[in-house]
Design a protein around this nucleic acid. Sequence first.
DNA 1: TTTAAAGTGTAACAGTTGTTACAGCTTCAA
DNA 2: TTGAAGCTGTAACAACTGTTACACTTTAAA
Lengths: 220, 220
Amino acid sequence: MKNIDPEWNNFRNIGDGGDGFPSDLQYSIKFHGKNEVIFRQGDLCDALNILMTGSVKTEMITENGNLMGIEIINAPRPLAPAFLFSGNNRFPVDVTTLEEVEVLRIPKDEVIRLMTAQPDFMQQFLTHNANRTQFLTNRLQLLSIKTIKGKIAHFLLEQAGEQGDTFTLNRNQTELADFFGVARPSLARSLSEMIEENIIAVNKREYSILDKRKLRDLLL
Amino acid sequence: MKNIDPEWNNFRNIGDGGDGFPSDLQYSIKFHGKNEVIFRQGDLCDALNILMTGSVKTEMITENGNLMGIEIINAPRPLAPAFLFSGNNRFPVDVTTLEEVEVLRIPKDEVIRLMTAQPDFMQQFLTHNANRTQFLTNRLQLLSIKTIKGKIAHFLLEQAGEQGDTFTLNRNQTELADFFGVARPSLARSLSEMIEENIIAVNKREYSILDKRKLRDLLL
DNA sequence: TTTAAAGTGTAACAGTTGTTACAGCTTCAA
DNA sequence: TTGAAGCTGTAACAACTGTTACACTTTAAA
């Protein structure tokens, strides 16, 4: 899930002139403090916002009031660029800063101009949105697994594919439960049972897959 | 959810020459019969496929083997265009024909050429993908609601927003259960209870909202 | 019209998850 | 070192959903 995006660092050169950007490109830069909500679910999205420095957290509020953790975004990356061109162009999630951040803002019309003038930028934009779609599809798949053990199995097998059979997560149990959209004690119970059956081993945030076959069986 | 996409009918003129398409554009057309699986989850996606006539059904097979109905697609519309540019460019879903169909296929390189040459096409492509993303976000939101009554409430309130408080669905109860990702008898039970409490009324596929306040309370 | 297939209403029961509560363990800062 | 706050393990119970089965109704084809 990391580094699937092309670099957006070239935007650091904006305004320097002679770097491929139209010299008359209109844009602005905004600064925000820590733990600030910079976009809310439903906010109008009429410009391309690129997170230049810092990190933010996007979270969707489900209609039953629960938080449903989606993603942590580190600079440099655009924020919800797909929605810039959608029919109902409003932010789908809340965006909260995790530290001090710097956001570059380019109006929609300028984005279109930039895209037609610069095919590389267009490709980058397309690829980024494609990867976002894939991310959402993946989340959808995870959520469509009904049992908690099934979610755990799906998630761990995915991690094992990228890394070895032993790996460290950057989430604690509470955050993992949120990620799965389940209650924390329920997740703990399922994990306990899987440890008891010698399918996995867990030490703090380090997870080991002991029996990949049994883990796959949990997906059935 | 209907008619959110721009028209793709202009592709009917392809090959006529003098209609804006490059005269040397490479493409091919394929025909398929009814109930044929034309793309499978995981298939490589190296061309833009546009459904020109007929209709197809996309369904995702969750890892526990259940079907999870996603969407019915009517011509003219592209099939999974976002994945053309994604890092792992593979189909996220199975695509099954509902009738005889005609599919226009344009290789990826040609799509890029077409897009830079024709800004209108680019905009159309961007908007389409943006709306797809919004669709997925909406599905994600629906799935993240835990209770069946909550899902029903969310869905009916959404319908009521677009239409009046009485409307007809194009799904039967079984398909609605698939759409929600729940068991059919469970859905029937929840509907029965909501009818019993005079929150809604149902006659075949016609649904009426009788008490919008109580319906909203189900989202809490 | 008849008949098979599809769709719907309902019930009993099993299985999984959520809720709540509490104790022990870590971590981090004063 | 010592709190205090956060994280984890666990248990009992409630709530909800899934499974299976069957009768009934509707639809569509012969």
